[in-house]
Amino acid sequence: MKCYSCGNPAVIYRKYEGRAWCKKHFSRQLESKIKATIKKDKLVEKGDKICVALSGGKDSCLTLYLMDKFFGKRPDINVFALSIDEGIKGYRDESIKKARKLCKKLNIPFHLYSFKEEFGKTMDEILKNKEARACTYCGVFRRYILNKKSRELGATRLATGHNLDDEIQSIFINNLKGDTNRLMRLGAKPVAVKKDFVNRIKPLRYIPEKETTLYAMLNGIEFHDSRCPNAEDSVRFDVRKFLNDMEEKYPGTKHIIICHFDTILPALRKYFADKGSVGVCPKCGEPTSRALCKVCELLENL
């Protein structure tokens, strides 16, 4: 197949678009799409301090790489990275090496925090004598550190590497669970419900996972590509498979889902605006919509 733009050999054919692209034009297109998302949703503005949540995986590495490419030379915008060591031996130590290496290569400040320092236990220790679901603890603790530490580091934006597949999987899962509150929090720039929450942005939100991976590989971005050993074959796993099957059979499905969601999101947020007020956890002082925040509740169970 030949590139739609220049006729050189193509590296990808986008069925949902009906066009094939070479390395140069695919990369250029992907960057333009992400820039357009940033501009349209005002993900980054003058004076912003962007903290990139960097796991060392393909999507977070790509997010950091592009934030640096787009804003690295801007004197009014700061970019830095924050990684979390959950303490999963043989997995996270490897991905942190990649994260650190990328920051060094791009000359970006790198901040590392750990579950051990914050909560007194590594993820491996938490799972030792618990029948706990690993992802519940890990996800809640990780989000807590990301918000708290990025805020303390002065971030005005917390950029995550969520791609199109991640986002539509979450839309489906929240629908399957009937979780309206979580559903409303999705979006390219989820609403910061209280001043203590750092505004999250998802620059890769409209880019399929297949394309984030291809871009990273074509452009020499080194990343860690193992699956977490604690990852369960959960609902997300089944939803991912279902959506990939649908996309293969009906190209464009993934984009239709996100565009439709974006269409109804403002109405959802407006309708449910008064629900779920946010207060402060009496124990740790972090923002929460519960009597005791989820982190403190889980810590009590340890």
Binding site: S55, G57, K58, G161, E209, K210, R227, A231
Partner: peptide, 8 residues
């Protein structure tokens, strides 16, 4: 064939 791994 390169598997696309969902990171987390």
């Amino acid at each position: 064939v390169i598997n696309i791994v969902s990171s987390g």
